[in-house]
Nucleic acid binder design. Structure first.
Lengths: 333, 333
DNA sequence: ACCTCACATTACATCGTTGTAAAACGGGAC
DNA sequence: GTCCCGTTTTACAACGATGTAATGTGAGGT
C-alpha cells in the first residue's frame, strides 16, 4: 500500500496538514518540523496522489495537445517542443490525435472539460466545423496554425506572406511556370487556401498570368498523396519549371517521384516546401523551405494558455511568429 | 460552475448513486429512471470529473509513454500507433521525453507512482542505469526495444537476427566491404551492441574477415550526427561498397552526405537502414531497411501493460515482433 | 391478506489532499 | 507570574464519484 500524508504525519509526529505545508511551501514551517517531515517522506517513499490533489485544487497540471497525426514530421516536431517546454514549466502533456476529423476535434473539447486536463492546445485542420463548436463554457484553448475565425487564442505563421515570399524567391531564380502542390478542392484546410492566396498575390506582383493548370490539388498533405498527385499530374501535363509544395512532407514525396522519373532537381524543376522539418535538410537535394521557430510556437502557445488559465484573460489574442525563406539546393539556379 | 452528480441527481429526482449507476452501467437501472437521468445529464451538460473518479477508483485511465525524443521519426511513428491503439481502448496517453537521460527515465517511474498514471510504456536507451532502478513497488511497466536485463515485460524485435539478415542481404547483392554506421564506443545503447553482434555473425558465416575500420561509431542516432560521422570517416578512409546504418534516420543523413560528395548510391555504395520509417520510402534513392509492424509493437505493449494492470501477472513476459528485410533502390545491384 | 424474494434505489462513508478557522505555543513586556 | 501577540500547528470539512450495506418497492406464491 502506498503511503499517504496521514502515514507521513503519523511517522513524523505531526498533523497531515503540516506535511502538506512542507510539500507546498506556502505556509511557513519551522525548521525542525520540516526536517522531521522530510525525513519521514524519505523513509516512507511518499509520493503525493495527484488525483486527490487535482480533485481538491481543481487543477491537474496536465495540458492536452491535439494534433492531426503524430507520425507527421511537422506534428512530431511541434509535439517535441511542446512537451519539452511544458516539462520545463512543470506541466505534463497528454497527446491526442484528431486525424483531421472535426468530430474528434470537438470530442476533445468535452474531454478537456472532464478536469483531468487544465487546457488544450489544438492544431485544427478543418476550419469551420471544428471552430464553430468553440463555444462558451469551454476550457482554455489555444489554436495552432491557420484558422479562419477568431474564436480562441492563436499562434500562427503568416502563410499568405510566406507563400508570397517563397513564390517571389522562386521567380528570382528565373522560374516562371511555378506550380503549387497541395491546393484544396473541398472546403478543407485553411492553410491551403491562405498559401494559395499568397502564391497568387506573388504572381500578380510579378505580372505572371495565373494558370489554373498549375494548381495541383492534394487533399491530404502526406508524402504518399503528394507523390500520387504529382505523378498523375505529370502524366498529362508538361513539367513546370518550379514546384512549390505546401508542406515539406509533400515536397519529399515530390522529390521521390521526380527522381524516379529521372527528372533533375533543381536543373529541370525547382522544388520548395514549407515548415522546415528536419528531414528537409537531408533530402536529396536538400530542400528550400519556409522556416520558422517551432520552439517559439510551442512556448508562445503555452504562454497564452497558462495566462488564460490564470484568468489574465483579455480578448482573443493572436501571436504571429516570424518566418524566413531558407534556400537550399532544391531551388539552386 | 460545472455540474456534478449531485446536480444531475437533484434534477432527475434520484440519488447521486443512481446517476453513477447509469453512467457506469454495472448496477442495473430501470428503464424509466435511466431515461430521467440521461435527460438530466444532457440538460445540465454534465461531464464526470476524472480526478474524483481517479481518486475513488485508484485508476486514472492514463498511460504514460516515455520516448527518447518525439521529433525522431521512429519515436513519432511509435507514438502515433500507441496513441491510436490506446484511444481505441479508451486510454489516454501522456507523453514524456527522456532525452536518453537515465535520470529522467527513473524520474518518470516515480511520476508514474503519483497515481495520475496507471502504467508506463518506456523506450529506454541506456541499458543498465535505467533498468536497475526498475525495482519493487513500481507501477506496471512495459519496455520497448532492446534491453539487456529481464526486468519488466518487453516488446522487441530481434536485432541480432535482423542485423545478420540485412548483412547477408547486402552480401547477396555482391558487396563484400560492408561498413556499419552507429556502433557505440561508450556503454550506451543496447541496440548498437546487438546490431553489431548480428553484423559480425553474418560476416563470420560469409567467411569475410572482420575489419574494425569498417565500424563507424556514432553515439547519437540522428541524421546530423550520422552525416558528420560518415563525412569525417570518408575523409580518411576508402569508400566501402555497402553501408549498413543502424537506423533509417542515420541512413538518411548518410544518403545526404554521399549525394553531396557525388558518390552514387547504389552504384558505388549500397546503403541500408533499420526501422522502416515512412521517409525511407521517399528517400532518394528509396531506402532498403529492416521493417516491422509498429502498430503491432504498440498493441502488444498495450496488451502486456493492461494485462499486468489487471493483475494477470505471471513472470516477466517478452513479445518478439517479426521483421523482414525490405529491399529498395538503395541496395540495387 | 401476508410473507418472501429479487431487484431497484438510497444513505453513508471513503479515496488523499488542502483551505479555513481555530487552537496551541513561545517569547517578550509589564 | 501574567498577559498579549505573532507564529506554528491542528481539527475539520470539502472537492466529486462510487462501493458497501441497508432500505424501499413490487410481483408472485400461499
Amino acid at each position: 500500500m502506498r503511503a499517504t500524508v496521514k502515514d507521513v504525519a503519523r511517522r513524523a509526529g505531526v498533523s497531515p496538514k503540516t506535511v502538506s505545508n512542507v510539500m507546498n511551501g506556502v505556509v511557513p514551517v519551522s525548521g525542525s518540523t520540516r526536517l522531521k517531515v522530510e525525513q519521514a517522506i524519505l523513509e516512507l517513499d511518499y509520493v503525493p496522489n495527484l488525483s486527490a490533489r487535482g480533485l481538491r485544487n481543481g487543477r491537474s497540471g496536465v495540458i492536452a495537445l491535439a494534433l492531426p497525426d503524430l507520425a507527421t514530421p511537422y506534428s512530431a516536431e511541434i509535439a517535441h517542443h511542446v512537451v519539452e517546454v511544458a516539462h520545463e514549466q512543470g506541466w505534463s502533456i497528454q497527446i491526442e490525435e484528431t486525424g483531421s476529423d472535426p468530430a474528434r476535434e470537438y470530442e476533445l473539447m468535452s474531454r478537456a472539460r472532464s478536469n483531468l486536463i487544465d487546457g488544450l492546445i489544438l492544431n485544427p485542420v478543418v476550419l469551420d466545423e471544428s471552430a464553430v463548436k468553440v463555444g462558451v463554457s469551454l476550457p482554455p484553448v489555444v489554436l495552432l496554425g491557420e484558422v479562419s475565425q477568431q474564436l480562441a487564442d492563436r499562434v500562427w505563421v503568416d502563410s499568405v506572406a510566406a507563400a508570397r515570399d517563397m513564390t517571389l524567391a522562386l521567380a528570382r531564380t528565373g522560374r516562371r511556370r511555378i506550380a503549387v502542390l497541395g491546393t484544396a478542392e473541398g472546403r478543407h484546410s485553411a492553410a491551403a487556401v491562405l498559401r494559395t492566396r499568397g502564391y497568387q498575390a506573388a504572381l500578380e506582383e510579378l505580372g505572371i498570368d495565373p494558370d489554373d493548370s498549375l494548381l495541383i490539388p492534394c487533399e491530404k498533405w502526406t508524402p504518399q498523396t503528394a507523390a500520387d498527385a504529382l505523378s498523375s499530374y505529370l502524366d498529362s501535363n508538361p513539367l513546370p519549371d518550379a514546384l512549390f509544395c505546401f508542406t515539406d512532407s509533400m515536397a519529399i514525396g515530390a522529390l521521390s517521384v521526380l527522381w524516379k522519373r529521372g527528372i533533375k532537381v533543381p536543373e529541370e524543376v525547382a522544388v520548395a516546401g514549407f515548415d522546415d522539418i528536419a528531414d528537409g535538410q537531408y533530402a536529396v537535394p536538400s530542400l528550400t523551405t519556409v522556416s520558422f521557430d517551432k520552439r517559439l510556437v510551442a512556448s508562445e502557445a503555452l504562454r497564452l494558455l497558462t495566462e488564460r488559465m490564470a484568468d489574465r484573460a483579455g480578448g482573443q489574442r493572436v501571436v504571429t511568429v516570424d518566418y524566413r525563406i531558407v534556400e537550399r539546393n532544391s531551388t539552386a539556379s
